[in-house]
Simulated assay, not measured.
Amino acid sequence: MSNAVTALPAAASAEALRHFSVELTFQTDCWDVHEAIASGQPGFVLVDARSPTLYARGHLPGAVNMPHGKIIASRLGAFPADTLFVTYCAGPHCNGATRAAIRFAGLGRPVKLLAGGVTGWLDEGFALVTAEMDRTQSI
């Protein structure tokens, strides 16, 4: 019996392996970001691509606020060229993180997208911080 799931056959295992392996070079998940932050040496800059107002209401710990439209070369001068940036926005319904990732990549910077964004973070049971709790500045 055929249905929407089985109507098209799955990719060959070798092709699926290539596809899913490459996918992880473009994104990471909330649990891995949380663990990296907790280690004290995450190895990346976490970028909240939402508006300053939404950032102030609650953001991921250690994140800097850099709305995607404000990502320009002159703002990145303080970061070494090989700095990895991990972008996020509100969640799967928001494309701000993707727009930010496009800006970073267009400037020749390494970048990954945080799958799930704020929604995914909260779904994992992790807390947000507010501007008053976290003295991280916008850049």
Score class of each variant (00 low, 15 high):
residue 96 G to Y: 06
residue 80 P to W: 02
residue 21 S to H: 07
residue 85 F to E: 14
residue 30 C to T: 12
residue 18 R to P: 05
residue 112 K to A: 02
residue 103 R to S: 07
residue 81 A to L: 12
residue 104 F to R: 03
residue 111 V to F: 05
residue 100 A to V: 03
residue 5 V to A: 10
residue 76 L to K: 01
residue 127 A to R: 15
residue 17 L to K: 14
residue 42 P to H: 12
residue 3 N to V: 07
residue 78 A to Y: 01
residue 102 I to G: 01
residue 109 R to N: 09
residue 13 S to L: 12
residue 38 A to V: 10
residue 127 A to F: 13
residue 38 A to N: 15
residue 128 L to D: 10
residue 138 S to N: 08
residue 23 E to K: 04
residue 137 Q to N: 15
residue 56 A to Y: 04
residue 63 A to W: 11
residue 50 R to P: 00
residue 135 R to S: 15
residue 131 A to E: 15
residue 119 T to V: 10
residue 125 G to D: 12
residue 45 V to N: 00
residue 19 H to R: 15
residue 130 T to C: 11
residue 101 A to P: 08
residue 127 A to D: 15
residue 116 G to E: 09
residue 39 S to K: 04
residue 100 A to P: 05
residue 17 L to F: 13
residue 139 I to G: 06
residue 128 L to K: 13
residue 127 A to W: 09
residue 12 A to G: 10
residue 107 L to Q: 04
residue 112 K to I: 05
residue 80 P to T: 08
residue 35 E to R: 15
residue 19 H to P: 03
residue 90 A to N: 11
residue 131 A to W: 06
residue 30 C to N: 10
residue 81 A to N: 03
residue 47 V to A: 03
residue 20 F to L: 14
residue 3 N to C: 09
residue 23 E to D: 12
residue 36 A to N: 09
residue 84 L to Y: 07
residue 68 H to F: 14
residue 99 R to H: 10
residue 97 A to Q: 09
residue 29 D to P: 04
residue 135 R to M: 13
residue 13 S to R: 13
residue 39 S to F: 09
residue 86 V to W: 07
residue 100 A to C: 07
residue 101 A to V: 04
residue 4 A to G: 08
residue 120 G to D: 13
residue 100 A to W: 03
residue 109 R to P: 03
residue 106 G to L: 05
residue 109 R to L: 10
residue 55 Y to E: 04
residue 30 C to G: 02
residue 111 V to G: 09
residue 93 H to S: 09
residue 50 R to M: 05
residue 14 A to E: 15
residue 95 N to F: 08
residue 103 R to N: 07
residue 116 G to W: 07
residue 84 L to F: 08
residue 54 L to K: 11
residue 29 D to A: 02
residue 99 R to A: 12
residue 132 E to M: 11
residue 42 P to R: 02
residue 15 E to V: 08
residue 78 A to P: 05
residue 110 P to F: 05
residue 83 T to S: 03
residue 37 I to G: 08
residue 96 G to P: 01
residue 48 D to H: 00
residue 102 I to P: 02
residue 8 L to S: 08
residue 46 L to P: 03
residue 57 R to C: 02
residue 57 R to K: 11
residue 50 R to I: 04
residue 131 A to L: 15
residue 86 V to I: 15
residue 122 L to N: 10
residue 138 S to F: 04
residue 99 R to I: 06
residue 43 G to S: 08
residue 81 A to M: 05
residue 8 L to R: 12
residue 14 A to Q: 12
residue 100 A to M: 06
residue 138 S to L: 07
residue 8 L to Y: 06
residue 129 V to Y: 13
residue 9 P to K: 10
residue 98 T to Q: 09
